[in-house]
Nucleic acid binder design. Sequence first.
DNA 1: CGTACATTGCACATCGTTGTGCAACTGCAC
DNA 2: GTGCAGTTGCACAACGATGTGCAATGTACG
Lengths: 205, 205
Amino acid sequence: MSAMTTGNTSRADANRRRILDVALAELLRDPDASMDQIARAAGVVRRTVYGHFPSREALISTLVDDAVQALAEAHAAGREGVEEPAEALARSVLAIWHIADRYRLLVALAQRTVTTQGIRERLTPVRESCADLLRRGLDRGAFSSPLPAPALAYVHEQILFALMEAVNDGLLAAREAGRSAAVTVLTSAGVPAALAGALVEKIGD
Amino acid sequence: MSAMTTGNTSRADANRRRILDVALAELLRDPDASMDQIARAAGVVRRTVYGHFPSREALISTLVDDAVQALAEAHAAGREGVEEPAEALARSVLAIWHIADRYRLLVALAQRTVTTQGIRERLTPVRESCADLLRRGLDRGAFSSPLPAPALAYVHEQILFALMEAVNDGLLAAREAGRSAAVTVLTSAGVPAALAGALVEKIGD
DNA sequence: CGTACATTGCACATCGTTGTGCAACTGCAC
DNA sequence: GTGCAGTTGCACAACGATGTGCAATGTACG
């Protein structure tokens, strides 16, 4: 026995991965999903999950860390080297949209006070990066809003969540969702609708 | 004893009210708040709460019903008799904002799958009314968006939630929040920023 | 005062979840 | 095959939450 604390068998690693994947989906469906629900959904026994993760907290923490990292990378890659605020924002949204599923877990968990209280803090850097971007755009007149940049960043965040829900509920075609999200975010920042549409169309993807 | 099933003492009624009020605040802070936490916060014993509400479910259900009703009334009163979509939307947002605290509980609970699964359905009429409003605006060119009306209604909903959070976190002055919310909702629907600002300013409060 | 009802303070059974311990089993590699 | 890491299937203790029962206490109102 000695558990799988350090072991690196192919089988063990595959299981660990599957547990993480399934836990993501399961917790998304129900943030209070028990270890048993997760284990069963992953096709293993509860005891096995505890072999890979010492506690429920640890499992969720791993999940959140991974998601935050992926998100931060997508965001950074999107706005990298782009000077114009509107285009940087559009690219960031399009890039983030590709890992939308992981992001949804974050929001779902961040919405709740409990479970893990560190999520909002861990997301802060990304949110602040967005706020900076928005502030720059507001300063140079590319954007227009009665809101201060940080509040506008909240709006930005929630718009993405709203559209992920819309896709989930069949109100929006998944294929066009990314572009629509980018346009809507730009529009909510005061970019004229026609201009926002043209810009996103030019960027493509 | 015979419990306070039908009794209408002044004291009992006052307690019932206080329990509901406190439960609202407590559940907002933590959707998983226990009956004991709620009872203690209300200054009574857990057993007393069970005197007024047969179960946790019943307590929450009462809370949600009240909130939905207040919300629906505010929304209806706001758009009542107003023909122009943009103005109707602005008035609706301003009216809804006044009972924002109650609405926040709804969103906080609606975000979760559990607890009470009927919330989304109970909110549907209001959301559809908003979608109709948005559709009318899109049809006659007052609004502009790549999104279908129902998806835009989701965005509308989430923007309000985002700004409530922003107020909570001190990023936005409560006094101006209502007007800012109205402007932002209009803007996200494609109404030019200058026009949206002027319209909301004209309506006032 | 006495009646009527609300509230309290316990006790209790029940249930679900977490985390751990241990023996038996499985599958893959050497 | 032998061995070893991972997995399984139980059993278990601990905890917290729900919902109920009942006797004692408190408080309004005639």
